[in-house]
Each structure stands twice: as structure tokens, then as C-alpha cells.
């Protein structure tokens, strides 16, 4: 009996001595009441981002035709039906050229704008299309680029073209809307990377006799490559998920039937959530693939601080 209470006491003492250090040990490693403040937000993201994503992944392996064609039926259908499979190429055919053009235009313009004293006016103007969003840009371009729109009218007045050129309800319309909505984003991102490069590095190169082209090629570009890779990835991912402008400004049944239209039709017109999830997963996978390819290739370039000071 005595021995039993002793062990009991021992156990309690052990538990209490263990409890205190555990709490302190946790606090030492950074887990205490303050750390718990992040839990609601983290739980929210897990519940409404991670869980739906996983749910979609599993749902895509539970196709309507599971009994006859097995769990991969959705993916087999997607890759065998040209109407579905071609949406990948149609999307890439829009997203890749627009992203390259956006980054290519952003670099020289950002290089020039960073020397400006009053950047704020230009950056404010460029924030407007980002804020208005793709739906409004599509609606505006329908007016502006249409056969009776101001652009065609101006070109005809200056005798640059004979009759109105077709710029809406085709590839060109979607391309131009992606350029208008995507360029400001790419540019502002590139500008923030360019301004992060210490100007004294360029001055040093200049002192050593490098002209503008050599300074850009051998000093700026290697420092910028990292940022450009990220800017390209973010732009590409946005362009790859083009939706409203492909419907409103393009040919949603023809040349601009992009992958997001296929996913939308599967989910909200055919009510086949399993197929829609499969398309969404394929879409995410293609985006991931391109991003990984780009980020892997940046190892070729210099990685390190872009500041001129020590450290």
C-alpha cells in the first residue's frame, strides 16, 4: 500500500516536473501563447485551400464512368479527346508569348523609369488596369478595338489600313487584353527588382569604362535574372488561367478555348465535378511544370546579394 502511494506520488511529481520543462522547452523553441495567434489563419487556409485541393485531387480519381473505365477515366478522356486536350496548347499559345513580351518590355522600361524622380504618377496610372480587373478591360476593349472603335478609326484616318481590322472575338483580342492587364503587373514587379540593385555597382562598372550595353549585359542582367525568373513565373501563371477575356473577347468555342473554359464547362454546365477537378489538376500541374522548369534553370545565373555594401 505504502509502496503504491509512493509510486503514485512519484508519478505525479514526474508528471508535474515534466510538464513545466515541456512548456518552457516549447517556449524556448518559439511555441507559446503568441504563436498560437496564428492558428485561426493557418486552420482557415488548411480548411479552405489545402483541403479543397486534396478533395479535388481525390475526386478527380472518382469519375462518373469509374465502373467501366477505372479511376483514370477522366484523365484518359482528357488526353484522348482533342477538344479537351488541345485546350492546353491553345492556352500555352496565348500565355507564353504574352508573358515573354511582357517581361521583355518591362526590362528596358523599368531600367529607364528607375532613373526618374517622379515614378509615382506612372506607377499610379499602371495600377489602374490591375485594379479594374480583366472583366472591365474586356468590356472596354470590345468598344475600343471593335470595327467602329477608336483604334480602327484612327488607323483608317492615317491611312495605315484600308478597312477595319478584326481585333475582337479572335486570338488578337485576347492577346491584347492580356497585354493590357498583364503588363502593369509584370512591370511593377520588375521595377521593384530593378530598384533593388545598388546604383553604385553600375557606377563602378561605368568608371571601369563599360558602356551602357556592357553595363546591362555584365552587371545588371546577372543580378536581375533571379527576379526576372520569378516575375516571369508569376505573369505566366496569371496568363495561363485567363478566363473572362477568353470568353468575352475571344472565340470561346474556337481558337481561344482555353483550359479554364473547359474546366468551367465541365463544372458548371455539365455538372461533372469529377471531370472539372481533373481538368483543374491538369491545369495546376502544367503551371507547376513550367514554373519548376524556369526556377530550375535560374541556377545557371548568379545568386547572391544585389546590394553594394558589405554583407
Amino acid at each position: 500500500m505504502n509502496a503504491l502511494t509512493d509510486t503514485f506520488e512519484d508519478g505525479r511529481r514526474a508528471a508535474s516536473t515534466q510538464k513545466r520543462p515541456l512548456r518552457m522547452r516549447l517556449a524556448q523553441r518559439g511555441f507559446d501563447g503568441v504563436t498560437l495567434l496564428m492558428l485561426p489563419a493557418v486552420l482557415f487556409v488548411i480548411l479552405l485551400f489545402v483541403y479543397p485541393f486534396m478533395y479535388g485531387l481525390f475526386l478527380s480519381f472518382e469519375p462518373k464512368k469509374m465502373a467501366t473505365e477505372g479511376i483514370f477515366a477522366n484523365y484518359i478522356t482528357f488526353f484522348n479527346d482533342p477538344f479537351l486536350f488541345d485546350t492546353i496548347w491553345k492556352t500555352l499559345r496565348l500565355a507564353v508569348p504574352v508573358s515573354i513580351l511582357n517581361v521583355a518590355l518591362s526590362i528596358p522600361i523599368a531600367m529607364r523609369v528607375r532613373l526618374m524622380r517622379r515614378q509615382r504618377l506612372l506607377t499610379t496610372i499602371l495600377v489602374i488596369p490591375i485594379t479594374l480587373g480583366t472583366v472591365l478591360i474586356a468590356e472596354g476593349l470590345l468598344n475600343y478595338l471593335g470595327p467602329q472603335g477608336w483604334l480602327n478609326r484612327t488607323l483608317i484616318t492615317f491611312h495605315l489600313i484600308d478597312g477595319p481590322i478584326r481585333l475582337v472575338h479572335n486570338y488578337a483580342g485576347v492577346f491584347l487584353s492580356l497585354l493590357i492587364s498583364g503588363f502593369p503587373f509584370t512591370f511593377l514587379l520588375t521595377l521593384s527588382y530593378v530598384t533593388g540593385i545598388d546604383p553604385s555597382l553600375e557606377q563602378a562598372a561605368s568608371t571601369l569604362g563599360a558602356n551602357a550595353r556592357a553595363r546591362f549585359r555584365y552587371v545588371i542582367l546577372p543580378l536581375l535574372a533571379q527576379g526576372l525568373a520569378i516575375a516571369f513565373c508569376l505573369t505566366f501563371v496569371q496568363m495561363f488561367s485567363v478566363f473572362p477575356s477568353a470568353v468575352l473577347l475571344g472565340e470561346p468555342a474556337g481558337s481561344t478555348r482555353v483550359i479554364s473554359i473547359a474546366a468551367y464547362v465541365a463544372a458548371f454546365e455539365e455538372y461533372d465535378y469529377s471531370m472539372a477537378s481533373a481538368i483543374a489538376m491538369i491545369m495546376g500541374f502544367v503551371q507547376l511544370l513550367i514554373v519548376v522548369l524556369i526556377l530550375a534553370s535560374r541556377h545557371i545565373f548568379y545568386r547572391g546579394p544585389a546590394g553594394g555594401a558589405k554583407g
Binding site: 487556409v45 479552405l48 485551400f49 483541403y51 479543397p52 485541393f53 478533395y55 479535388g56 485531387l57 475526386l59 508569376l234 501563371v237 496569371q238 495561363f240 488561367s241 478566363f243 479554364s260 474546366a263 468551367y264 463544372a267 465535378y273 472539372a276 477537378s277 481538368i279 483543374a280 491545369m283 495546376g284 503551371q287
Partner: peptide, 18 residues
């Protein structure tokens, strides 16, 4: 970072399903 970077279309369809 992921929900901010991923385009809404990609996670929007599974999210809407749920």
C-alpha cells in the same frame, strides 16, 4: 504564400465543389 500565388481559377473549382 500558395493561395496568394496560385491563380484563383486553379483552386476555385475544387473550392466551389467543396
Amino acid at each position: 504564400l500558395l493561395p496568394m500565388m496560385a491563380p484563383p481559377i486553379t483552386f476555385g473549382i475544387p473550392l466551389a465543389t467543396v
